[in-house]
Amino acid sequence: MKFSLKQAAVWITLYVIFAAAPIVVAYLSPVPNARSFWVEFAVGLGFVGLAIMGFQFVLTGRFKNIAASLGLDSMLQFHRQAGQIAFFFILGHVFILMLANPNYLAFLDPHANLPRALALSAVLGALVLILVTTVWRQSFGLSYEWWRVIHGVLALFIVFIGLVHILQVGFYISVWWKQAFWLIMTVGALFLLINTRIINPLRMYRRPYRISQIREERDEAWTLSLEPVGHHGIRFTPGQFAWLTLDKSPFSLRQHPFSFSSSAENNECVEFTIKALGDFTKTVGATKIGTRAYIEGPYGAFTPDPDPAVGCVFIVGGVGITPIMSMLRTFRDRSESRNLCLIYGTLSLETTLFLDEIRDLERTLNLKFVHVLENPPVGWNGERGLISKDILNRHLSEHYIRDNEYFVCGPETMMDMVEPYLRCRGIPLKYILSERFKIV
């Protein structure tokens, strides 16, 4: 399914309605006498902040119906932003309450109520910790696997203490159905976590793969071929990605997202091309043939229009080429003649992934290939430096601007330049598809 603005608008509206629902339920009759505006406002922020925290489990639940229209990478980016919003809502709840009425300081006073003060102080600490470990994970040298454990535990702790806090204060939930509402919301969040961590891995357990081939590519990248064991494998659309578990049980937290690099027409095996960038990817080259693997997916809306009349312009940097290779190989296998333009920025000729194959594809596909080299060899006549507006202006003439989809994938700095550039050139939002490496 392709990304649709209309569907995105529906999901966002539903999100706002569900996030605001707890406060609406709280205000339904019977209600106690109102306090000052600032106290009511702060309490409302707390309700909504906790609801946003609960919905974080939906965003990371990898539900294919929602992810198909929005793209799982977009949902995870929204999850990051929403987490920060929830943080400020809950912080606002605490500070505004205490400024509006200093008597509320008693909630954090161990002399007034030790368990309550400990729990609420711990939840505030957990909020700071979850934000800090997420935003600055790599600066702390925290591995992805440990971060996932810490993140899940802290998130559950915050939601659990939040619920206990609401039930214990009890101001707006005096009647049973209001208490039931909060319990159902919390059980729902817990179920979503169980779905992600237990039910999905169980499904994967029944569909194992084995590594059938490992190829060394240029620039410290490796291509892993995976063949299904005892099942028919996976069907995906070129440009999509999956979560890969290598040599571990599917219940392991050592699971990483990678784009498929093979043709979607290849039913025998699927391939991922992985560059040695992080703690896990540096070990990929040492994988043995026959290693057991599991795939969860496919996900992502970074996919070309099925109509071959729609052309594609790819603006790519470095290892961002992998999902594009899947598209080009698929177009080749389908003998498609759609208009294609690849603007590919790399460090040098020696480190350019798939260079020989792209040159071959230039002959079989209707492909215009613009290679931008940061460190070109002597006598290089092509584009040099980093992908820039000047280079894009030179190669994206009016002919290429119309009737095409634009796929942007590469380093953050390149994408931060290219995305607004395409909008300035008048490309409608729905024709610009971008995928960032850092989705986790």
Partner: peptide
């Protein structure tokens, strides 16, 4: 979906929710 728009959408949703909370609190007190 473009990253810049996701950030803007999230900030927009945040502001919208603050306004909703403020309006509901005001209606409660009024």
């Amino acid at each position: 979906m473009l990253h810049i728009y996701i950030r803007r959408i999230a900030i927009g949703v945040g502001f919208l929710l603050v306004i909703i909370v403020a309006l509901l609190a005001w209606s409660r007190v009024a």
